[in-house]
Design a protein around this nucleic acid. Structure first.
Length: 418
RNA sequence: CGGGGUGUAGCAUAGUGGUAGUGUACGCGGUUUGGGACCGUGUGGUCCGGGUUCGAUUCCCGGCUCCCCGACCA
């Protein structure tokens, strides 16, 4: 992509109406645009990052048997009445709207009811189980207060997977497989070391549920962590009995701020019973399906990555989610020979499949370097007049600041191009 | 939803009951050209609705907006 063609631009100053670091940097760099409180546009660069994040999530969900689908946002009140979750008294985050044809619809804030109803058509026997459908889809929540940039919005993408199992053993096996898959996801996001699988209250059907909390000063949540034992718990699990069960003492836990990037929850048969999702077991007995739900917030993950990994100059993307792998910065391009040489490098890398952003703008070097730092693409390749004379490129690793001078051949080898 | 703030140009900000200023961005001319250059020049603005007043961007009332704290967050 040629930067001169990109319709977004960077800004020197942070917007006055954002305090959160994630939003300030993402807006300054042109990744997102704020439309209103709790609703953001993902601009071309931001959408690429979100796409990378979603791809990682898909790969890990598919690896444990997930099957992707997508469900509607529009919700039928009748279905939700059956589980008692339609009324505003029961659920205070509904967005509801009148249908011109008569009746009311809601905008989905989660999809247990919908997926359960769908699965009624496809699950009849223990032979049909287990199954793990998931989607990455818009959720709408009428929050009292949107805040913290893209961390808490009223409209957001969510990866929600639902498990349908015949037995508790089957359910437990998937539950722990999914927990492992989640850790892989967060490791691939570059925030694995700071992310803990924490114990939270389990609700009606299990002792504990689990959240995935990333330690960060910008966090809205609080967790109690023992880094040595690699264990973390929520405030609600701070009871002595719970801690005994987990093998930690209260005084071994340190209070830390954190961001909830994911959660997994056993649902038991609450939804299958309410909506009549049953299967026939090997004895011919009709049983309710055992369910679980598993969420990850892609945009929130993106904000967390920015909050955790950025520095004073700007964003620092891990390679796994960066919008581009290489930022080719061409300077001294008023010199035709230098420009042609730089264009050649761009075309070679691009044609070889390297994801590359080429700063071909007619701008000064300082401005280009500052923008490059802000954008946070992992590798900056500087092509200049001086470099051309020496036959070398300056390759700067954004994260470490390491500078290497490479020949054209070395450059291609470095990026795995033949 | 309770409390506190806020609203001036694309962005960031100053100021005033009487012609609204600066930086940046943008256009044009010129000098520059490896860390957000410089000179000249130009375009562009008071959240909405009432009220007070000869006159309101300023004062008053109402609304809306956005931010922060709290509550909430299955």
């Amino acid at each position: 992509m040629r930067q001169s063609q990109l319709f977004t631009k960077t800004r020197k100053e942070a917007p006055a109406d954002e305090v959160a670091k994630n939003a300030q940097l993402l807006i300054r760099a042109g990744y997102i645009y704020k439309n209103m409180a709790g609703a953001y546009t993902f601009l071309p660069l931001g959408l690429r990052v979100l796409g990378k994040i979603n791809t990682i999530i898909r790969e890990e969900m598919d690896a444990i048997g997930g099957q992707e689908l997508t469900m509607p946002s529009l919700q039928d009140s009748e279905l939700w009445e059956k589980t008692g979750r339609w009324s505003d008294d029961a659920v205070d985050v509904w967005f509801k709207s009148e249908l011109k044809a008569g009746g009311v619809v809601g905008l989905g804030w989660t999809h247990e009811e919908v997926i359960t109803n769908i699965m009624k058509q496809f699950i009849a026997s223990y032979k049909d189980l287990p199954k793990f459908p998931y989607q990455i889809q818009k959720k709408f929540r009428n929050e009292m207060r949107a805040k913290s940039g893209i961390m808490r919005t009223r409209e957001f993408d969510m990866k929600d997977l639902y498990s349908f199992s015949a037995t508790q053993e089957q359910h437990d096996a998937f539950y722990s497989a999914c927990a492992s898959a989640y850790m892989k996801v967060f490791e691939r996001f570059g925030i694995g070391n700071e992310t803990y699988q924490t114990f939270a209250s389990g609700g009606a059907f299990s002792k504990f549920s689990h959240e995935f909390q990333t330690l960060a000063e910008a966090g809205e949540d609080v967790v109690y962590v023992n880094e040595e034992k690699g264990i973390a718990v929520n405030e609600e699990v701070l009871e002595v009995a719970d801690l005994d069960e987990l093998g930690v003492k209260r005084e071994e836990l340190e209070m830390r701020k954190s961001i909830e990037v994911g959660n997994i929850f056993s649902l038991g048969t609450k939804f299958s019973e309410a909506l009549g999702l049953t299967f026939t077991d090997e004895q011919g007995v009709e049983c309710p399906v055992i369910m679980g739900c598993y969420g990850i917030g892609p945009a929130r993950s993106m904000g967390t990555i920015v909050d955790l990994l950025s520095d004073e100059k700007g964003i620092v993307w891990p390679e796994s989610v960066a919008p581009y792998r290489v930022h080719l910065v061409g300077i001294n391009t008023d010199d035709t020979a230098v420009r042609d040489w730089t264009e050649g490098i761009y075309n070679n890398l691009k044609d070889a499949g390297v994801e590359i952003l080429f700063d071909d703008r007619d701008a000064r070097a300082g401005e280009k370097f500052a923008d490059s730092d802000l954008l946070g693409i992992p590798y900056r390749v500087v092509a200049s007049k001086r470099g051309k004379e020496e036959g070398k490129f300056e390759v700067v690793t954004r994260k470490t600041g390491e500078v290497r001078m490479l020949t054209e051949e070395e450059l291609y080898a470095d990026f795995g191009v033949n």
